[in-house]
């Protein structure tokens, strides 16, 4: 019984990847979109690990997943005025 574990792992990760990226583009709340973006970036890094390229995986996490979503959330905070004015105005779009 030869189970291709790598293929199964790849399918699971792809499912995560696609669900996460769909959630990024359809999400109404920007912070959640950034969170899902971080998740897709980490997942894609794990897919790189399946291709036996550890260095790309680590750089992906260090640079991409570590910095880009933080920058995104930073920008979101800087450009959302509603939370400053009256509490509770969670901005839809």
């Amino acid at each position: 019984m030869a189970v291709d574990w790598e293929l199964i792992a790849f399918f699971i990760l792809s499912a995560f990847e696609i669900i996460g990226s769909v959630l990024v583009v359809i999400n109404k709340r920007l912070v959640r979109a950034a969170f899902w973006l971080a998740m897709t970036l980490v997942t894609i890094g794990v897919i790189y690990l399946l291709f036996l390229s550890e260095f790309v995986f680590l750089i992906q996490i260090l640079v991409y997943a570590g910095a880009v979503p933080v920058l995104m959330v930073f920008g979101i905070m800087l450009t959302r005025r509603k939370i400053m004015d009256e509490p509770g105005q969670e901005a839809p779009e």
């Binding site: 912070v31 950034a34 969170f35 971080a38 996490i61 260090l62 997943a65 570590g66 910095a67 979503p69 933080v70 959330v73 930073f74 905070m77």
Partner: peptide, 9 residues
């Protein structure tokens, strides 16, 4: 480097 995202969120 992953923790700042959690802190920011």
């Amino acid at each position: 480097s992953l923790a700042p995202l959690g802190i920011l969120i």
